[in-house]
Amino acid sequence: MTELPRSSRPATPAFLDLGERLRQRGQLEAAATVTVAGLGHYPTLAAGHDLLGRIRADQGNDAASEEAWRAAIACEPAHVGALKGLAFLAFRAHDFAAAERHLETAVARAPHDASLLAALDRVRAARPSAPVDESLRLDDPASGMLLCDADGMRVSGGLGQDRTAAAADAAAAETTGLLREAVRSARLLGLGGVKHLVVETADARLAVVPVRPGAALLAVRGITTPVGRLVATAQRSAAVAERWIEGLQ
């Protein structure tokens, strides 16, 4: 089947609504038939693949639902529904780390979605080694995680509680310059590509981690935070940020 020309496409294709209604009525075969046919016309519609993932999950076919949700992610890297679905499958398979990763990416996209936040709490509680006190909220100015783009503009986050947005903007501008200098130094000294830069002062520890393409993540913590933990948190946040940025593009 051929994809419909953009001009003739409705804003929300009818098959999504019909497929969802059939799914909710328990008519799963019919729902799947409608959705697969709709995807034939809209193969890059993430919402369609997400719906198919939910139908396959209702049918108890985890492999097919995972395939559908991965197709949704391929169309839209930070699709919240698909990320929730993949997290659900990972959680059921006791892969709590993967479940947490998917949900963190989803939360970065939809920071005020209560169901996502609750799911993330459930996953972290179920994970024996979960760093429960290290919340990962890229959109939260109080998180002490600051994401900045290649031009030194603040993309999200902030420097922590009681720190102003103006201070975060200034830090973003300087962080990009610092990372650029670190990349230059590493190249000239034969250190290879930068993995991270840790800066320690008398009262704070900072980690700067590159986030492709050209962006940087600054993590700010107190001096008592162990260095290894700071770096691990910053790298985990950078991985989430990378997927989040891909989703924005």
């Binding site: 300087e174 130094s185 290879g192 800066v199 704070a204 770096v231």
Partner: peptide, 18 residues
């Protein structure tokens, strides 16, 4: 960067590369 936080001046740097 530390001036913008604000925090004390740097006393240690650790640049890790591949």
């Amino acid at each position: 960067v530390t001036r913008t936080l604000p925090a004390a001046p740097p006393r240690m740097l650790h640049l890790a590369g591949d």
